[in-house]
Write a protein that binds this DNA or RNA. Sequence first.
DNA 1: TTCCATGTTCCGCA
DNA 2: TTGCGGAACATGGA
Length: 265
Amino acid sequence: MPELPDVEVFARTLGSTGLGRTVTGVEVLETGVLDEVSAGDLDRALSGHRLEATRRHGKLLFVATRGGPWLVVHFGMSGSFTAFGSDEDPPHHARVLFTLDDGTTVAFVCPRKLGRVGLADDPEARIAADGLGPDPLAEGFSAETFRRRLAGRRGMVKTALMNQSVVAGLGNEYSDELLFQAGIHPRTPVAALDGETLEGLYRRLADIVERAVAGGTEDFPDGWLITRREAGTRCPRCGGEIERLVVSGRGCYLCPDHQRSPEGT
DNA sequence: TTCCATGTTCCGCA
DNA sequence: TTGCGGAACATGGA
C-alpha cells in the first residue's frame, strides 16, 4: 500500500485527527520497527508534547511536536496508521501505539515489520542523509528537474522511476501506472526516451499522484491499471491482455498492446 | 504447501 | 568508481 499517495493520505488523516493533541504515552509492541531509538527514548521524546504539523517527502512522514523532535515514520511494504478508542483493542499487527490526550490511540500497524519509526531533529537533514530525490508534489518539481534526474541513467525506465534517489515516492504500483498511462514499456532504457516522452511522463506523474490522493487512494478512475493488477485481465484502454513481467525483481503489470516495447523483447 | 507481496539494503558484476 | 539488478529480509495471506 504505502507509496507516495498512500503516505500523503496517512498524513492528512493524522492531520485531521491527531494535530493539536498532546501525546500522553508511547507503547512499543515490537522493537524491531524502531529506527535507532529505544522504546524508552521514543516515549520520553514524545510524551507531553503536542503534535503540531505533518510533512511528507516521498514515502517518509514527519510529524512535528511542540518543543520536541520530529517523529519520523516509514511505512515499509505493509504499514499503515489506524486510530482506535480507549474502549477498543489495538488492531492486529499493531507495532507502536501513540496515545493522545483525547483518549484516541494511533497505532502504527505493520504486519511484515519492514516499516520504521524514529526521531529526527531536522527533516531536511534526514532527507539528505537518505539520499532522497525531489518529491513530485513539491513546488520546485519541474519538468527540467525530472529530465535532469533521469539524464545519464543506463538502466530501465521502470527501475529508474522506483529509485528513490531519482524521484522520491514512486513504488512498484504507481511506476506501473505511470508507464501504463504514458504507453511506455517498463523495460525501455531511460536513454531511449526522447524529450517529448519525458515531458509526457512528467506531466502524467503529477496528475496521477494528485488524482490518487484526491480519491483517498481507494477510488480510482475506470481507465487505470492499478485496480486490475492481474495477468490475463483486459486492458481498460485498448482491450489487450494484461501481462505480468518481473522487472528489477518485482512483479510488473503492463499492457503489451499499447505500451511500446523496446527492441528485442 | 507454495507462491507472491505496495519497501529497502546489500552484494556481485559490468 | 559508479551504478545496475537480483537476492535477501520478515511475515502474512491467497
